[in-house]
Every structure is written in structure tokens, then in C-alpha cells.
């Protein structure tokens, strides 16, 4: 049942050596740069620069090591969809975590599990809620 292998040229592409060597060197340089920058305190810029370098490294890895520069668009889309859905996961979860302590319009203080249950005052008459509800 097995067919003889036909000598049809594959749609394969051999990545030119200059790209692979270039990528290797730039990745190593970037990794070292990242470490060096992290030794200095630049405030908010530390994390910005760090993520910038990570993204450049990741892009280089995908473009030239995984060969996406010469890949079919569909395959790239397929692979990147993983990151898209990861972003969905992250952003929606963050939309919960970030706003969980949003301000309660009635009490003018944050929501939050710690604040929700309060022991009744010794007099035991009423919470502040009734004062504001009118």
C-alpha cells in the first residue's frame, strides 16, 4: 500500500546561516543587557525596559529560530492564537482582581472580603448603612 517516495521538492526552506548566527548573537547580547539593566534602579522604567527586551527576544526566537519569517501566514496565526487566548484569560481575570476593591458607593470605602463582615457595635443598634440609605 505504501507509495514510492516521489522526488517532489518540499516546500522547505533552509534558513540562511547569517540569520541564525545573527539571532544567536543578538539573543545572547540582549540576555546580558537585561541582567545589566536590572542592576540599576530606574524606577518604573525597569519593568518597561525588561518587557521590551523580552518581547524583542521572543520575536527574534520566533522569526528566525522557529522560521516564522518564511512560514505561511496561516501557521503563524495558528501559533499566535495561543497568545491571544492567553491574553483574554489574563485580561478578564485582571478585570476582576483589579476592580475587586472598587469603592462601595454607599459606604465610600473599599469593598473587600476583610471589610464585609464587621462585628456589631456593643450598643448593637444599627450599621452605618441605614444612615446613608435615605
Amino acid at each position: 500500500m505504501q507509495t514510492q517516495h516521489e522526488e517532489v521538492p518540499h516546500p522547505h526552506f533552509m534558513i540562511p546561516l547569517k540569520y541564525t548566527v545573527g539571532t544567536l548573537i543578538s539573543l545572547l547580547v540582549l540576555a546580558v543587557t537585561n541582567v545589566i539593566i536590572s542592576q540599576f534602579d530606574l524606577g518604573i522604567y525597569n519593568i518597561v525596559i525588561m518587557f521590551g527586551i523580552i518581547l524583542v527576544m521572543a520575536t527574534l526566537d520566533m522569526l528566525f529560530f522557529m522560521g516564522f519569517r518564511w512560514e505561511r501566514g496561516f501557521h503563524i496565526m495558528m501559533f499566535l492564537s495561543g497568545f491571544v487566548f492567553l491574553f483574554i484569560f489574563l485580561s478578564f481575570t485582571l478585570s476582576d482582581i483589579m476592580y475587586r476593591n472598587a469603592t462601595d458607593p454607599y459606604k465610600m470605602q473599599p469593598y473587600g472580603i476583610k471589610n464585609l463582615v464587621k462585628p456589631l457595635p456593643a450598643g448593637g443598634e444599627h450599621s452605618e448603612r441605614t444612615e446613608h440609605s435615605e
Partner: peptide
């Protein structure tokens, strides 16, 4: 398959 790997690790990153 690699997409599934990305999402697998992705959970930890989240």
C-alpha cells in the same frame, strides 16, 4: 500542540 503548551504554561504566568 505547541499552542497547547503555550496555554499550559500560560496558566502559571497568569
Amino acid at each position: 500542540f505547541l499552542v497547547t503548551e503555550v496555554l499550559f504554561f500560560g496558566g502559571l504566568f497568569v
